[in-house]
């Protein structure tokens, strides 16, 4: 599982260094996936039943990381939506999504 995490981080890092704004957004998304899986893996996989108490099992998987990841998924969705909107807006205003061309003036 750790390898999957590593791969998703790798792809994410590669993509956010690209020139196209959209690639950057996709890269961010990949990084988010990577960190969710990382959190889950760290808690130990398949240590028990789903964390639902009305079932007969007594050993559960750790509920806390799941709660954290749930929050993280939602937040990362918010961020992705926001960056997409920024990309859209940037394209409307500057007619390009190339980060090279979007560089500010040299004295900024």
């Amino acid at each position: 599982m750790s390898i999957v995490v590593g791969v998703s981080f790798m792809v994410g890092t590669y993509l956010i260094m690209a020139r196209s704004l959209l690639s950057v957004v996709i890269g961010l998304n990949m990084l988010a996936h990577g960190s969710h899986l990382l959190l889950l893996t760290m808690a130990g996989l398949k240590t028990g039943a789903p964390p639902l108490l009305d079932r007969p099992e007594t050993a559960f998987s750790d509920p806390l990381p799941q709660a954290l990841i749930l929050t993280a998924i939602v937040i990362s969705f918010g961020i992705t939506a926001f960056t997409i909107a920024i990309a859209y807006r940037t394209y409307k205003v500057y007619q390009t999504d190339d980060l090279e061309q979007l560089r500010g003036s040299p004295d900024e």
Partner: peptide, 29 residues
């Protein structure tokens, strides 16, 4: 990995996200 809530959320979010991307792509080059 025994995380039903996560799976649900992920499915939901992923669907919305794809739609969002599609919408945005309509305008982007």
């Amino acid at each position: 990995f025994r995380a039903p809530d996560l799976a649900l959320t992920q499915l939901l979010i992923e669907t919305v996200l794809v739609i969002l991307f599609m919408l945005a792509f309509y305008h982007l080059p």
